[in-house]
Structure formats: structure tokens, C-alpha cells
Design a binder for these strands. Structure first.
Lengths: 195, 195
DNA sequence: TGAATAGTGTCTCTGAGACATTATTTA
DNA sequence: TAAATAATGTCTCAGAGACACTATTCA
């Protein structure tokens, strides 16, 4: 019994969803994963694998699907529970260089063990969540402007989102702080928090 | 590693979703389930457990969630992959009397191993599917009238669905057969098929 | 003819798409 | 003042809710 995790993040330079990959024992790249210890919970195994490979903690991975194809892993019969998690890129700063990489989800490379399918499912899941909630993965901090939220959601969605429609959808889901910020050289923007 | 299945059906007499329960070794009632054989696929284990306990075959169970609470099963550490399937009640005719029962999903009884939670999740899943597609679980046969479809969907949803709104939603998703039937003592109804 | 069921028409309200306009800052 | 960004206004269209009306059968 194993767990595999698609850990997604955003690189501010590249307005596109990225997935963390780790170097595997067989020299290829793949998703971080591990075998379950006896009595261990799935979420703990996910956290353990990410801590070992990317030094990230305090996650709340979500189950996606159980992959049970017997021919999936040539080393033997092993079920894998695929998970997804979203994390701001600054929390990946301490990951091991050379042993990990961030790859655009649209071009994950040739991966074994059905990992490309897991990534596709993870992206779909995250996009569905972002379509309904303002930044549920906390890619932004506690406070942000609607413009910043708009850019993050466009990057997650992988396509432009209409500006005014987006504002109308999200504004009732946010709590205004009453403060204004000028960060960009335009009219000051109102700061919001999640509710 | 185990599988458990919430097998849902409709009793024409009771316009409410029912779930199949089986008598367990400890004399209580629960969902049908089994332990996975080495190398066996999850769908095959589900089918095997339902065949043994309710004599139903040819199913396409869908994964719901993996339950991994270590204290879930007092007999030892076992993960369970919950599944859901919908089946017309006539296919349950040959199930073992005394060893099985059909219970309204709203009143599943006091179940162990978190089976009540599985049922709740299964019902939610099935209701979501029925909100978008005409009878995806094939509770009706190949041909049916919009009135029959309406009654089935109301029973699945557990609440009244507006008649004309339902028709407008479903009609473009159906293929008319061109035939009329008089089954109820009113104006003859048009027969439709799934697309 | 009346009850029961099937099928259609239409009004309103809401929400999304699309576009335009105003507001405030920096260079 | 021009460019950039933020915020708001408004027109239209599609879909859902709600209600009314017509059609056809059986008792």
C-alpha cells in the first residue's frame, strides 16, 4: 500500500500551475510517494514523504483516487492512493536541489506508474475548488487585493478569467479589511481577507 | 485492505433510496464487503463480495473514499476503500432472505466501522450524478416516459423536483423513440431512450 | 363530464458575458 | 498629462422558478 502526491504550486515568474517531482531510485522523475507503515494514516504517510523529499510540513492532503492496476508497478503488486495538495512556493524553498524539480503541469514529462494521470486528476480537482472559493490553497497570504487574487486564479485555471465577472463572484466571499494598499503604481486597491 | 460497498436501489412501493445491508459475523448489520485477494483489482473484489452476498453481477462500482482510521476496525488495522453502485431492485430478487435487508438511506440504523458515513457519502455522490444525467444508474429500463423518469429522480433526490423545469433539463439529454404509451390512465406519454 | 396524466407557453428573476466609464496613483 | 491599475455601471442573453393553459385518456 502506497501513497503518491501531486504537490502543486505557482511560480510568480511563470503564470502556470507547477507540480513537484522528485528523482527516483531508477533515475527517472516522478511524484513523491512512500509505502504505508503499519498502522499509519494516509495523511501521515503523505506528510512523511513530502517532509523527506521537499521539507514541507503542516499539509492537509486530499485523497483523489486509488490506483489498483496490477501491472502498474513492475516491482510487484502495490495499490497507491493518489493525493493532491496546494502550497505556496516559498514553502518549497528548502527542498533539495538536484533531487527535486518544478514542472508545468501541462508538460509533466514521461512519467511511469501512471503519475501523469494523477497530475491530470489533481489539476482538475484544484481547478474545481478554485472555481468556487477564493484561493482555498492559501497560495496568497492572509490579506490580498482582488487584483492579486485574480492573477492567482487565472494561473490556476490556466486561462484568462474575465475581470469584472471574477470580482462579482469573489467579492461576496471575502471580508474587507477597510485598508488600502498601493503596490503597483495605479489606483490603490482594497485589501481583503478570506472569511 | 478491504472494500465496502453501498449498493443503492429504489423500492417502487417506497419512494426513497434504499441501501443493501448484510448480516455480519458479529450478528449486526453492515455493508457488504470483503478483503482484497493478492493481485485482485478493487472492482473485482467489490463484484465478488456482492455476488457472494446478494447474487448481483455485472456492476461498475465507483470509488468513493479510502477510510484509514486505525481504530475503525477493532479486529486489527485495515484500510477500506468505500464504493457505491446503483442497481434496479429486480436484480436483487435472488438475494439471500434473512441474511440481507434493504433500509432507507435516511435511517441506516446503528452501524459499525463507519458504514453510516459511507452511506451518506454514497447518497451524495448518486444525487450529484442524477442531478446532471437522466437515470445514469439504469434504475429504469431502456425506454421510459418523462413522467417515470421524473418519479425516479424525485425518489433519488429525496425531495420534489419541479415538473416543467425537470422536463426542460432532461429532454435535450434524451432520444425520442417516436412511440407513445398509455400506462397510467391519462394522456399517452412519449417514450424516450438514453442517448 | 371530471379526474388524472402529459405536454407546452410565458412571465419574472437572477447570474454571467461583454463592454464602457470613472477613480486614483506613478512616471 | 499619459499610462497603469482599481472599481463600478449597464446592456443583453440564457437558464431556472413559478404559474397557467392545452391535450388526451379512462372511469
Amino acid at each position: 500500500m502506497a501513497v503518491d502526491t501531486a504537490l502543486l504550486t505557482l511560480d510568480p515568474a511563470e503564470p502556470e500551475l507547477m507540480v513537484l517531482q522528485v528523482r527516483r531510485a531508477d533515475a527517472g522523475w516522478g511524484l513523491p510517494g512512500t509505502f504505508l507503515h503499519p498502522g499509519e494514516r494516509l495523511a501521515d504517510a503523505v506528510e512523511r514523504s513530502l517532509q523527506d523529499k521537499a521539507d514541507v510540513r503542516g499539509l492537509r492532503p486530499r485523497q483523489l483516487h486509488v490506483y489498483d492496476d496490477p501491472g502498474r508497478d513492475s516491482r510487484g503488486w502495490a495499490l497507491s492512493v493518489a493525493h493532491v495538495e496546494v502550497v505556496p512556493i516559498r514553502r518549497l524553498d528548502s527542498r533539495r536541489p538536484g533531487q527535486t524539480r518544478l514542472v508545468a503541469v501541462a508538460r509533466p514529462g514521461r512519467l511511469r506508474y501512471g503519475h501523469a494521470e494523477i497530475i491530470a486528476r489533481a489539476v482538475e480537482h484544484v481547478r474545481d475548488r478554485y472555481a468556487e472559493q477564493p484561493d482555498p490553497g492559501h497560495l496568497l497570504g492572509r490579506q490580498f487585493t482582488l487584483g492579486e487574487l485574480h492573477r492567482v486564479h487565472q494561473a490556476v485555471a490556466g486561462r484568462p478569467l474575465q475581470r469584472d465577472g471574477f470580482r462579482r463572484l469573489m467579492k461576496p466571499l471575502l471580508r474587507p479589511t477597510g485598508h488600502l494598499v498601493t503596490r503597483t503604481g495605479g489606483r490603490p486597491a482594497e485589501l481583503f481577507r478570506r472569511t
